[in-house]
């Protein structure tokens, strides 16, 4: 059954191990709609990392069905799943995960490879994305020449340069000091738009508080899924052009 949700999980389980089965996710059903700002919270071992792998199309459900933009991901081969991942999801990691031997612009351009773009067009889009996070002047710096906050902003530029429908962040402020963390969270607020949903996996309550919806997990199940009325509504989104 397909529907208009951006992402939809139905009775999804993710089980690791053959002899001793570990239910990292246990019959989870939920959906994320276009333009939502969601946080997924929970203690260690609650299954939120597994959830992140599934939402990011890096992993497949052991049981149950998952749809992304109406497509059942189990029916996709690696190439189609990779393409869908590249089109729909933009990843932001706790450890930034920039490619060390490439400068900021080339790191951002990496997300635009194999998309039939001319180098000039790729460069133009990468520079526009770096401009959104305020790092266009540092486009030729390598990751080692930048602070953690700057590296995370380059990673955000890399995530948004493909104009994904979902920004998927894994503890995006976990490796940053409070100033840089606030800075990054502000960028998330700015990037949130009706066309761009954001899902942040975190254990930090202040990060979760920025979201409009909070999904709480424990022992591989969703224990709470609540709309946060006091979250600041976002009225504008960052634009690339």
């Amino acid at each position: 059954m397909a529907d208009a949700s951006l992402l939809r999980l139905e009775e999804v389980s993710r089980i690791y191990g053959d002899e001793v089965k570990v239910h990292a996710l246990d019959r989870v059903s939920m959906s994320i709609e276009a333009g939502e700002f969601v946080s997924i919270v929970g203690p260690s071992g609650s299954g939120k990392s597994t959830m992140l792998g599934l939402l990011g199309l890096l992993d497949l459900p052991t049981l149950g069905t998952m749809w992304v933009t109406g497509k059942s991901v189990k029916e996709l081969g690696d190439t189609e799943r990779s393409r869908l991942r590249g089109e729909v999801v933009g990843f932001i990691f706790q450890q930034f995960h920039l490619i060390p031997h490439l400068d900021a612009r080339r790191n951002v351009e990496t997300a635009l490879l194999y998309r039939n773009l001319t180098p000039a067009e790729r460069r133009r889009r990468a520079m526009a994305a770096l401009d959104v996070v305020g790092l266009a002047p540092r486009a030729d710096h390598r990751p080692v020449q930048m602070s953690g906050g700057e590296q995370q902003r380059v990673a955000i530029a890399r995530a948004i340069v493909t104009e994904p429908k979902l920004l998927l962040a894994d503890e995006p402020t976990g490796a940053l000091d409070s100033t840089n963390a606030a800075n990054v969270m502000q960028i998330f607020q700015d990037l949130h738009s009706p066309l761009r949903a954001i899902a942040i996996v975190t254990h930090d309550p202040s990060v979760a508080a920025a979201a409009q919806r909070r999904i709480s997990m424990k022992d591989g199940r969703i224990v709470a899924d609540e709309q946060l009325v006091d979250a600041a509504p976002t009225t504008f989104g960052g634009t690339l052009d």
């Binding site: 990011g56 393409r83 590249g86 990843f91 990496t110």
Partner: peptide, 16 residues
């Protein structure tokens, strides 16, 4: 391996 993981997350398939 981290670089490979990033590239895969960015949508590059196994064959790429």
């Amino acid at each position: 391996s981290a670089e490979i993981g990033i590239r895969r997350a960015l949508g590059h398939g196994r064959s790429v």
